[in-house]
């Protein structure tokens, strides 16, 4: 499992890095989304992988923490998911506004000048 998940994080972040280095703003926005998946999975995996033991406690009684998934990375990732939605929305709006003002969808607001 670990090897699959780490390869997945690698593929997601490689695609994300490739895309954020591209010149068109839509490519950058897709790249940021892919990078945010990769980073979320990375943070989540810092709590190690646990199968079928979600952090739902019994009501009362002794709790053995080693039997459950680590809740802290999950809580951090939950906020990260919502925040990354907000940043995507902001970026999208800046993108369409800049397209309206400059007439191009290049990230710099103007096409690269030809040498």
């Amino acid at each position: 499992m670990e090897i699959v998940l780490s390869l997945a994080i690698g593929v997601l972040s490689a695609s994300g890095i490739w895309l954020i280095l591209r010149p068109r703003s839509f490519q950058v926005i897709v790249g940021l989304c892919l990078l945010s998946y990769a980073v979320n999975l990375f943070i989540f995996s810092m709590g190690r992988l646990t199968l079928s033991a979600p952090a739902i406690m019994p009501k009362g009684g002794f709790v053995d923490p080693t039997r459950y998934a680590d809740p802290l990375p999950q809580a951090l990732v939950l906020t990260a998911i919502v925040i990354s939605f907000a940043t995507t929305a902001l970026f999208l709006v800046v993108m369409i506004a800049s397209r309206g003002f400059t007439g191009t969808d290049h990230v710099d607001g103007r096409e690269r000048e030809q040498p």
Binding site: I9, S13, I17, A38
Partner: peptide, 14 residues
């Protein structure tokens, strides 16, 4: 970059 992140993730997870 991708392989670096994968390597770090794997070594921490295990």
């Amino acid at each position: 970059g991708g392989s670096g992140i994968a390597l770090v993730a794997h070594s921490v997870m295990t």
